[in-house]
Design a protein around this nucleic acid. Structure first.
Lengths: 178, 178
DNA sequence: CATCCCATGTAAAAAGTTACATGATTGG
DNA sequence: CCAATCATGTAACTTTTTACATGGGATG
């Protein structure tokens, strides 16, 4: 159900946005938070309009349709944000691989861990560049967006450190096997 | 496609496991890594058997069917682990909420952040208890499982710290608005 | 006037969730 | 013998992904 609130929330913050505008937001700002495809987005816009949570303006220039949140929509968004318990069915493919790393040779496992740490190091660099490139405004989206970027930075740094730590731990496994 | 390899990998490590045995593994060890329901699991076992990646033994005591990995299955698991690039379409509902926190009052936002930090503190305590309760064996699954637990611990600690940091950051937003 | 970007929509498939359904064996 | 646990299977639904399809408007 979160997609629904992601869309509703974006419309609340970006009044008068079109499906296309929202799609760009999903691609840029929400890419690492709550990705959504064009297909999902337009479908959800239809459902939100049917439910009376958003209003669709008449078609503009290229069939463009601008949306704005209704009072009912604002109330529903608010309810979700403050009342509904977040649930966390987090799936982590990288961790799954680590969990199964006992099925390959120690050399391959080491190499895997090393490559992951390196990949995360690169990601940290990219994030630093991004942070300097983007000119952060003072609107809500930018301010909260910056907090989310910092979250990403800490998350990646933590993962990198863990991969390096775990790699040395795994070396002690190999020794005990020998 | 990862579910397929989660199942295949578990069978590789726990030779002769039944669907039921695997389900317990998903509930206990993989709950926070790659959750799967009974429904998904039995379906996947059928597909893996059809694809020749696992062998199903004849029915035992209570209709129990024991699975073991085939050479083709082991090769396919290996290929996935070392050759296929992991992809990370991570969705984070909590982060999505933070992203949209500009739509509620500063007081409500503060309370949300505070509650999240507290929740993560509790989770850290639970994890410490779990770590002391479980008696870790020396098999692959236990050793790698411990690495994954440590990942969880670091991840939760990082999140807690971030929530506390972000909460104070958000207070400066409110001041500039006033 | 062609190419890029704006702009929307739908169909089909894969993945994941929830619920229902059934029966055997073991331990107290 | 009764309850808990072992054990499997399927149906219906929701969510997510991938692909196809179409056309208008701006810019060089």
């Amino acid at each position: 159900m979160s997609l629904r609130y992601a869309v509703l929330g974006l419309i609340a913050e970006l009044d008068g946005a079109s499906g296309y505008d929202l799609l760009k937001m999903f691609e840029i700002s929400l890419a690492n938070v709550w990705p959504a495809t064009q297909s999902q987005l337009y479908g959800e816009l239809g459902k939100l309009a049917d439910a009376g949570l958003i209003d669709a303006a008449a078609e503009g220039p290229r069939g463009r349709r601008e949306y704005s949140i209704t009072d009912a929509g604002r109330a529903e968004l608010h309810r979700w944000l403050v009342e509904v318990e977040p649930k966390k069915p987090m799936r982590d493919e990288t961790l799954l691989r680590v969990f199964l790393l006992g099925t390959v040779t120690p050399q391959e496992a080491q190499e895997y861990m090393r490559a992951q740490a390196a990949r995360l190091d690169d990601a940290l660099d990219d994030l630093a560049v991004l942070d300097e490139t983007v000119d952060w405004d003072d609107d809500d989206l930018s301010r909260y967006g910056r907090l989310v970027i910092e979250y990403g930075r800490r998350s990646i740094a933590m993962r990198r450190d863990w991969f390096e730590w775990a790699r040395t731990e795994m070396r002690t496994f190999d020794e005990s096997v020998r």
